[in-house]
Every structure is written in C-alpha cells, then in structure tokens.
Design a protein around this nucleic acid. Structure first.
Lengths: 156, 156
DNA sequence: CGAGTTTAGTTGTGTATGCAACTATCATCC
DNA sequence: GGATGATAGTTGCATACACAACTAAACTCG
C-alpha cells in the first residue's frame, strides 16, 4: 500500500536531508582543521563517557555509536591504539569484551567538545529559536525511534 | 567568543543527528534490498533531471549532489558505465564537461523513486503532522543555508 | 603574443565503513 | 555431557569517499 507523502512533508525531507549533510561537513571540516578526530570518534567516546563505569560491551557500543559491529571493531582498534580506550575481557562471558574509556579518552572528549559545540551552535542552533528547538527535539525523538523493515536484524 | 548553546538546542541537535543516521540507514537498506542503487546515485540523477536540458557541468553537479569534485568524477564514471548519463564536452569551455542524463537515467529515477518515497513516508514523514512538516521545512531551509568558516572554499 | 595564474576535471592514495565468512564461546536439549 | 545452534567479536574483501597533486585549458597583463 502506498503510504501518503504530502508535498510539504517531502519538502521538509529534502531540506532536512540537504541541511544535515552541509552541517555535518562543516563540523567535520572544523574538527579536521583543528587536527582533532572526527565525529565518529567523539560519538563512541561520549557514549562510553555516559555509560556506567565508563565501559560498554562492543555490540552495545556499536548500536549507540551508529556503526556496524565490524565497523566498531576497527574504530575500537584505532581508539585503543590512541590509548583513548582499553579492551577488557568480560568475566561473565568469554565471548564478550568491554570497551573501557581511559582518562586520556576523557581528556580527548574535553578537547573535541569546544570545537564541536561551536559547530553545533554556529551551523545549527543559531538558526533556531527556543520554541523551534523544542519542537525539533520533540519531532526527532519520534523520528529517531525508527525500526527498519526487516532485511537486517542487528538490533534484535 | 563562545557562542551560546542552550540545553534545548543541544538536545535538538542530538536527536536530529541520531534520527538522521537511522532514517538514512533504513532507506539505504530498503534500496539495497530492492537491488537498487544508493541515494548518492539518486541525488545526482535527480539534480540532472531538474536541470535545464537535463545536463549540468561537473562541478555544478558536485555541489548539488553534495560531493567533492573527485568524488563526483568517480560517481559519474559509474553512472556513465551504467549508461544512466553521458559525458559531453562543453563547446564554450574546453576544460569543462557536461553530465547529460539519458533516457535510461530517467528510467532509473522512476525505478528508485517508489522505494525512496516509501522510505521517506515511513521513516520520516509518518512522524510529522502538517504543521510540524511546515516548520521543519522552514527551519531547515535556514539551517541548510550554511556557509562554512573557511578552511575550504569549494563553494566560492 | 607569452609568462604567470586560475579553473575544470581526473588520478594516486589513504581512510572509513559495510557485508559475509570465520573463530571462539555460550546455551539448549536430548 | 556432547551435539546443535545461537551469539560476540574479528577479519577478508569490496566500496565510497576525501584530499592533494596533476594535466589541460582558459584568463590576465605586460
């Protein structure tokens, strides 16, 4: 059955889509210009920072950091090499591993954040008044709760 | 100077960011499942479809399709190989080339669109009522008019 | 005109990421 | 408790992209 898609919704999608790529590229550009790691590093480190004991199992982190498991493995390799996290075997489950944020990882978050923050403020937040920000948060909380149709069940 | 970033704006950003990746991945997954090319192909073909005479110079297309010039060169290689576009030398300027959409390119757009449309409707538009869609379109028109700080001047 | 500069596009190379296949471990059930 | 199947993570391989260096063709001045 053909789901309805009114013109205004399509227009909203197009602008949303284009705006995202532009803002994303602008922020990544600022990070690169400041010789800082990219947002994918930040996302992973930040998820660990929020987690209890600052550690998370690999697959949990993959989901939070919006990566495939294999993608996460490589990212964790790099983060570990940079001493920003450590891999720890899980005592309960011999298959599982924790990614554990190190102090240097926290430090790196502190270095990245000012640049990231400025990017968010400049490229995104500066264009929204408070009520628009509230509505955006509300709308995208719903949108972000997507569950994809089927051809993958990584999240099950 | 530290630009202001109220908590609600930050929350709006986080949800916007996460939602985007999830919706994007869901749509790409649907396209892949239908053995159709990815959104970057669609974007490029669609920009050509909209352009006068269904053709655009390489660098103009790169900007519209949100790609670097080199990225566009490779994409155009593939599109040309698939007979969806043709490269034409520009008679006015010996350096420049047009990417010209072919009938098969139009056909491909027609094949992709139903799947893309359903994805937009399902993962995005279905979560917005009309006034939310209007506001989203308005907000992201502003946000999308980003001009990045400096360390690149591709758009100048 | 001809040297120097700019612009359009391409190519070399490196990086990020996904999927599918693999290994090791755990869970189930007879 | 051993075979069967599921799960966690890794690895091989392919793809998509960016940046920087390159080539060729315009422009710009003297």
């Amino acid at each position: 059955m053909k789901p309805s898609l009114p013109e205004i919704h399509l227009e909203a999608w197009r602008r949303y889509y284009v705006a995202f790529w532009r803002v994303f590229a602008a922020i990544e550009g600022d990070l690169a210009a400041a010789k800082l790691p990219s947002l994918s590093w930040y996302d992973a480190l930040y998820e660990l920072y929020l987690a209890p004991d600052r550690r998370l199992r690999m697959s949990a982190l993959a989901r939070s950091a919006l990566l495939s498991r294999s993608g996460l493995t490589r990212l964790v390799d790099k983060l570990e090499h940079a001493r920003l996290i450590e891999r720890k075997a899980c005592p309960k489950d011999g298959r599982a591993h924790y990614a554990q944020l190190t102090d240097q990882g926290v430090e790196m978050l502190r270095k990245i954040w000012p640049v990231y923050r400025t990017g968010i403020a400049t490229y995104f937040a500066g264009h929204l008044n408070v009520s628009e920000a509230k509505m955006t948060a509300t709308i995208f909380a719903r949108v972000g709760a997507v569950r994809s149709i089927g051809h993958e069940d990584k999240s099950s």
